[in-house]
Amino acid sequence: MRLHRTVVAALGALALVTALPTSASAANGSLHYVNVNGDDFSTDNPVSGECYLLVAGAVHVDNGTDSVATVYADHGCEEPLGAPLAPFTAGDFGDPVPHSVMFS
């Protein structure tokens, strides 16, 4: 009987753990950028799949994360601008400058 209770308790705990919601994945590291006014900004551990606004547009983007960063010409991550930035790479931008970024 004691073994039966142990097995039931273990199965109950397993069911509870597998029923918990999973947390959103994040890119590990930081995104740093310089906007068109020369101001520096950074975002730590950005959530994958979330669109981030690049205030006033970015002339330099440093992807210091372990995920691919795609920059976009618009504010809503709908118009990709050039090739995505691989992890731990940087890019300089002219006209047009990116106004948003998303990690995958």
Rank of each mutant, 00 (worst) to 15 (best):
M1T: 00
T6C: 02
A10V: 08
A13C: 05
A15E: 06
A15S: 10
V17R: 01
S23N: 11
A26H: 05
A26R: 13
N28Y: 09
G29T: 09
S30R: 15
L31Y: 03
L31D: 05
H32M: 07
V34N: 04
V34T: 15
D39H: 04
D39L: 08
D40P: 06
F41K: 03
F41E: 06
F41I: 00
S42Y: 01
S42C: 00
D44A: 14
N45C: 12
C51Y: 14
C51G: 11
Y52W: 06
V61C: 02
V61P: 03
D66N: 15
D66R: 13
D66P: 04
V68K: 03
A69G: 05
T70F: 13
V71S: 00
Y72L: 07
A73N: 10
H75F: 14
C77F: 00
C77P: 02
E78R: 14
E79S: 14
L81P: 11
L81D: 08
P84Y: 07
L85N: 03
T89I: 09
T89V: 07
T89G: 03
G91N: 10
D92P: 07
D92K: 04
D92F: 03
D92R: 10
D92Q: 05
P96R: 02
P96M: 08
V97Y: 08
P98C: 11
H99D: 00
V101Q: 05
M102C: 13
M102P: 03
S104F: 08
